[in-house]
Design a protein around this nucleic acid. Structure first.
Lengths: 111, 111
DNA sequence: GTCGCGTATCGTTAATCGACGATAAGCAAT
DNA sequence: ATTGCTTATCGTCGATTAACGATACGCGAC
């Protein structure tokens, strides 16, 4: 069923252009917000922000989740760029990618 | 396998308290960000923000999705509180819940 | 009342997520 | 090279998501 698009008759008289924001922009935003769309990931990010620099697998100790699960969440956070991991000896130090954080905050703030 | 928690030996000498943020807070944040964790929902919110007040099913026309799918996304946005819908005659006018928006922005900004 | 329009819900399907245990991989120290 | 510790990956499973068409619901107009 194809709607005619003329029948609009807006309920509110504002008629600004319905300029659809870039699809790419929406996907960008969605990817970043999705990174935070799980309590465990929020807690991880919060944890990393609390420490000035990086940290290792203490995250696992602080979370009621299996090590493999935490690792998966960290992977997601890395993929979205919010978090970086540096190998230091046998351990891995994670830290927030401030640039990505800034980008996220900017995107949200400018909503 | 229980990790001993004493073996820490932090890679970075910062040792601020690992005060775990409220679980409730994390869930709050996750719920709000999750609402935006899909390109379609981001676009809908953007659309609603562009118009000063509310709007109806023109959303469907602007999206490459079936009416029922859009309706589902709107339902999600309503459930998270980001969007409100008022019935006006046979149509429904949606508008951004500015309070929820403000809360989201605040949460992100204070990250 | 009935019709038409706009929206919501239902039922289904395929895909993805989140969790876990088990196992592999990487590195330091012995 | 082997051991021990830390982290990543694999494979699996149940739950959830996202999408759709079909259908039901609500309301105004006739």
């Amino acid at each position: 069923m194809v709607r005619t698009k003329a029948q609009a008759q807006k309920c509110c008289t504002t008629s600004e252009k319905l300029s659809l924001p870039d699809v790419a922009w929406a996907e960008d935003m969605a990817k970043l917000t999705w990174a935070l769309a799980h309590p465990a990931r929020v807690r991880i990010v919060r944890l990393l922000l609390n420490r000035t620099s990086c940290m290792c697998g203490e995250i696992v100790d602080e979370m009621p989740l299996a090590q493999s699960t935490v690792s998966q969440h960290l992977k997601i956070l890395k993929e979205t760029g919010l978090v970086q991991g540096e190998i230091s000896g046998p351990r891995v130090c994670y830290c927030i990618n401030q640039d990505a954080m800034a980008k996220l905050k900017k995107l949200i703030a400018e909503l």
